[in-house]
Amino acid sequence: MNSEGNEWAVTRRQIVGNAASIGIAVAMYGVSFGALGTTTGLTIPQTMALSLLMFTGASQFTLVSTLASGGTALTAVVASWLMGTRNAAYSMRMTPILKTSGPGRLVAVQLTIDESTAMGLAQDETAFEGRSSRLAFWATGLSVYLLWNLATFIGAVSVSAIGDPKSFGLDAAIAAGLFALVWPQIKSRIDLSVAFGGALIALALTPMVPPGVPVLAAAIVSVVVGWVTSRRLS
């Protein structure tokens, strides 16, 4: 084997190993999602359908917890869409790197999430004619897809055996799970003020509007702060 072939073999092994470990880490969230899905009133097939078809964790958690807090189906759906907007930015970034078309594009699009995009972009785009970026995206996307769905199933099935979810503190577990999702995203003082602003608006509106609406209203904070801060920078 020539030296470039050797180098590629080493890189390939590294990427596949990383993709597998990310999949395993994500499976922990998957078990929690499966558990929350079935305790908040979804059936096992509905919970599985979210992991198989929606396949973007934050949107799935959002949909399920909005329904759990008494929100209508419509507010839950809209909230999950708002949460999924960042995936549009991800696939825009990944498409020219992946060079997909036809059915390959349709599959790549579904696998475009936080983890696969981060791994794909972490590679040097010019290395091995872009092969390492593509492999990192596909290996991570497939590994997460497989393990996320397997984990959802395990979580959903194991919890549907439990009685009253409240006595097991599962309502508190939802809050903590969502908190653990947002925690690493808060990196600046602006992020922190958006977090507090969103929380305060939601609580202030809770007694006045139907469940689910306060969370949608909180999105206004992101729009206003995003608009104002980007103006100020330019």
């Binding site: 909230a79 949460m83 947002v182 608006i201 909180a218 992101s222």
Partner: peptide
């Protein structure tokens, strides 16, 4: 910027409500 900040306000609101 807005796309980046959307999950933060929505998730924080969900935490508060939950």
């Amino acid at each position: 910027k807005i796309v980046l900040l959307l999950p933060i306000s929505l998730l924080s609101a969900l935490v508060a409500v939950q």
